[in-house]
Lab assay of single mutants.
Amino acid sequence: QLRFETNGEEQAKKVLEEAKKHNLEAHVTIENGKWVVHVK
């Protein structure tokens, strides 16, 4: 499982879109005010 700390909602959405293009499972959590994308 990969973990990407992003700078906010915009970047998190871009990472999610990329993951979906590659048929990867991804979800976002907010940790300590940071948007974190988890990709399987």
Rank of each mutant, 00 (worst) to 15 (best):
E25V: 13
L16M: 14
K34P: 00
Q1A: 13
G33Y: 00
A12M: 06
K13W: 12
K40P: 07
E25R: 07
Q1L: 12
W35L: 07
T29R: 07
K21E: 07
W35N: 04
H22Y: 07
A12I: 04
A12P: 01
V37K: 01
V36N: 00
I30F: 12
F4K: 05
N23S: 09
E18A: 15
L24E: 03
K14F: 06
E5T: 05
W35R: 03
W35Y: 09
A26K: 00
K20M: 12
Q1H: 15
A12W: 04
E25T: 11
N7A: 14
Q11P: 03
T6H: 03
E18T: 12
G8V: 11
T29D: 09
Q11S: 10
K34W: 06
E31P: 00
K40D: 11
V39E: 02
E10L: 08
N23I: 02
L24W: 13
V28K: 02
T29W: 03
T29I: 11
H38A: 06
E9D: 04
Q11F: 09
V36H: 01
G33I: 00
W35V: 08
N7W: 13
N23K: 09
V36I: 14
E9T: 04
K34Q: 12
N23H: 13
A12D: 01
N7I: 12
V36P: 03
L16S: 04
F4I: 15
G8R: 07
V37T: 02
N23V: 02
K21W: 08
E17G: 08
T29Q: 08
G8K: 08
H22K: 11
K20G: 07
V28I: 14
K40L: 13
K34F: 08
Q11K: 05
E31Y: 01
K40M: 13
N7H: 12
K20A: 14
V15I: 15
W35G: 03
E25D: 11
A26I: 05
N23P: 01
K34V: 13
E9P: 15
N23T: 03
V15D: 02
E5C: 14
H27D: 05
E17S: 10
A12G: 02
A12E: 01
E10H: 08
E9V: 08
G33P: 02
I30D: 03
R3M: 09
Q11L: 08
K13F: 11
A19N: 02
A26Q: 01
K34D: 05
A12V: 06
E5I: 13
V28A: 07
L24S: 05
A19I: 10
K21Q: 10
K34A: 07
E31G: 02
T29M: 08
E5M: 04
K14S: 10
A26T: 07
N23E: 07
N32K: 06
T6V: 15
A19S: 04
K21H: 10
L24A: 06
V37S: 01
T29H: 09
A12C: 13
V28Q: 02
E17H: 09
A26V: 09
A12S: 04
E31H: 06
H27I: 11
K20N: 08
E18L: 15
H38R: 05
N23D: 10
V39Y: 02
I30H: 10
E31N: 04
H27A: 08
E17Q: 13
F4A: 04
H27N: 09
E18W: 15
T29C: 15
K13Y: 12
I30W: 06
N7F: 11
V37F: 00
Q11N: 07
N32S: 03
G8S: 15
V36L: 03
E18P: 00
L16T: 03
T6D: 05
G8Q: 10
G8F: 13
Q1V: 11
L24I: 09
E18H: 15
H22E: 06
E10V: 08
L16E: 04
N7P: 08
L2E: 08
E9Y: 12
I30E: 07
L16Y: 11
V39T: 03
N32M: 03
E9I: 09
V37M: 00
E9M: 10
K40F: 10
Q11T: 09
E18S: 13
K14N: 08
V28E: 01
L16H: 03
N7S: 14
E25Y: 06
R3I: 12
E18Q: 13
A12F: 03
E9A: 09
Q11H: 12
K21D: 07
K14G: 06
H22S: 09
E10M: 08
F4G: 04
G8P: 01
Q1I: 14
T6Q: 03
H27G: 04
E17P: 00
N7T: 14
K40N: 14
E25K: 08
R3F: 07
H27R: 10
E31L: 05
E25H: 12
I30K: 10
E25L: 11
R3N: 08
E5L: 06
K21N: 10
V37P: 02
E25W: 04
E10G: 07
A26H: 02
E18D: 11
N32D: 14
V15R: 03
N23R: 09
E25P: 08
N23L: 08
V15F: 14
K34G: 05
E5G: 02
N23A: 08
V36T: 02
E9L: 08
T6M: 10
K21A: 12
Q1G: 14
A19T: 04
H27T: 14
E5W: 02
V15K: 04
R3L: 09
A19R: 02
G8I: 12
A26R: 00
H22W: 05
L2D: 08
V37G: 02
K13V: 09
G8N: 15
